[in-house]
Amino acid sequence: VQMYPTATLKGENSVARFSTITIASPTSYIDTGSRAILEGKGSSAELITRAITKGGTIISRGQIIGKTAGTRGHLECKGLILKDGIIYAIPEIDGRVVGTELSHEAAVGKLAQEEIEYLMARGLSEDEATATIIRGFLDVKIAGLPEALQKQIDATIDVAEKAGF
């Protein structure tokens, strides 16, 4: 799977938000990302990604280009390696003028054993504790998203959880 949608924000105070949730099963190769080009005065963008590998390869790209003063952008990519697999997080911020504010954060890791043990001490099984942590990790609320679409996203996460992520 490969995708890289781009939004060029030319209108004053225009806004773009990209939210991506990727789960790679063994032997999967997924190359996804998004780009926002901030050209309009006061434009802003937020690129949020959650990636989980269960043995596949994920390349998670993100780029924000600030071309005009008074623009803002934030890029966030968080990844979990549940079984041996690969996650490449490639955040890019490209500021081209004084007065653009761009930030990014990227993190790839594993489930924290102490978090699992904490939940287990409160009565959850190890599988239930793991699923609870993963569900929280994948919880990316999207402002303005229609309720019907949010229900579809939640249902997809439920299916992935029942399949053992």
Rank of each mutant, 00 (worst) to 15 (best):
Q2K: 12
P5N: 02
T6Y: 02
T6D: 00
A7Y: 10
K10T: 14
R17V: 14
R17C: 03
S19R: 07
S19H: 07
T20P: 01
T20R: 13
T22C: 14
I23N: 02
A24Q: 06
A24C: 05
S25H: 13
S28A: 15
Y29W: 10
D31H: 11
G33S: 06
S34N: 03
R35C: 08
I37R: 04
I37L: 11
I37F: 04
E39I: 02
E39A: 12
G40P: 02
A45W: 07
T49H: 14
A51P: 05
I52Q: 12
G56E: 06
I58M: 05
I58G: 14
I59M: 15
G62N: 10
G62C: 05
I65S: 11
G66C: 11
G66Y: 06
G66L: 11
G66W: 02
G70N: 08
T71S: 13
H74N: 13
H74W: 01
E76M: 04
K78M: 03
I81R: 06
L82D: 10
I87M: 08
I87Y: 06
Y88D: 14
P91D: 00
E92K: 05
I93N: 05
D94I: 06
E101M: 05
A106H: 03
G109N: 05
G109E: 06
I116L: 04
I116R: 05
E117C: 02
L119R: 04
M120G: 12
A121Y: 13
E126S: 12
D127P: 01
A129S: 14
A131F: 01
I133D: 07
R135L: 08
G136H: 12
F137C: 03
K141Q: 10
K141E: 06
I142P: 00
A143K: 13
P146I: 09
K151F: 05
A155T: 09
V159A: 12
A160Y: 09
A160P: 00
A160M: 13
E161H: 00
K162Q: 15
A163G: 00
